[in-house]
Design a protein around this nucleic acid. Structure first.
Lengths: 163, 163
DNA sequence: ATTTATGCAAATCGTTTGCAAACCT
DNA sequence: AGGTTTGCAAACGATTTGCATAAAT
């Protein structure tokens, strides 16, 4: 079916970069509140996600933090997600994608999802769209028992590589 | 017009119903164009999805079409997706969810996705939201090489069952 | 009669988990 | 020390696939 290649050498932004102090402090705080340790590996994982300009898969994270065992990446990503530091992005890809939570990045955005290869790109929506989405969310909250926590607006189509 | 439905039917909402003739004809046409056979099992599968008011998982489809082997459901759903009859819905659930394609249902809608249990409900968005989304989609088409085919607006949160 | 669809069971592969050694405070 | 974290390998489970049989045209 889907040839779902994740070429990890594409532009994922900076190489093994350090975490900016301010972000580092905020992440460290959440770790300590959760009574977890802020190890070098975990810092590298967060730094990798912070440096990327799009959600990354576990294999992609593994390339950037190659000292870390794959199983540990899975474990850490799950923990980071529980701590609200990382957020999963669902796509049709074989691999799950992860990105930093928005309250850490201060950068509300949405995704362009390729229906062919599952690749994900970020994009920032016009203010008008955000206003409409928020209004609709409030309305759902009024009309049903579903408690809306956040929203996602995805544009699904074909990325440049898939024509 | 005024009623955007947030139908929360019980977990197994689909009854073994027959396919309405008009829809049946349109689906059958696509099968023949694809040189596939419109078997009783496949008709039952489409009927099950048509009768549901939300995207279903493969196990849920299996309950409604219990004569069909699970592997055949997977195979048929994949084929239906390739034919554009069925559309996958990505959630955090362990199971993929599927629904009839929108050009068959004539019923454009979006989803409330439970972040806890992965359940999915349909909801119809206000016209204003749809206008904003379409405008943003056009803008993406202009500003990038990504070819937008469709969009999805999901509200993620907690369903009534998950408090 | 010939081609396609189905059922069954085995294989696949991303992800999870158990456990002993390595690590942090 | 007393705990947590890590690596390794084995386990897990949703989905896929090979092949012989059944059904459709």
């Amino acid at each position: 079916m889907g040839s779902d290649e994740v070429n990890a050498t594409t532009s994922t932004g900076a190489r093994r970069s350090r975490l900016e102090p301010e972000l580092r402090a905020r992440v460290a705080k959440r770790f300590l509140e959760g009574e977890y340790r802020f190890t070098r590996n975990r810092e590298a994982l967060v730094a990798t996600l912070a440096a990327a300009d799009r959600p990354l898969t576990i294999p992609e994270i593994g390339v950037a933090a190659r000292t870390l065992a794959v199983s540990s990446i899975y474990r850490n990503v799950a923990m980071l997600e529980a701590l609200g530091i990382v957020q999963g992005v669902v796509t049709a890809s074989d691999f799950a994608h992860y990105e930093l939570a928005e309250d850490l990045t201060e950068h509300h955005h949405h995704h362009l999802v390729c229906s062919s290869c599952g690749a994900v790109e970020d994009f920032v929506a016009p203010a008008q769209l955000e206003d409409s989405v928020r209004a609709a969310a409030r309305r759902v909250g009024r009309k049903s028992r579903f408690r809306v926590e956040r929203h996602s607006v995805d544009f699904i189509g074909l990325c440049p590589n898939c024509v």
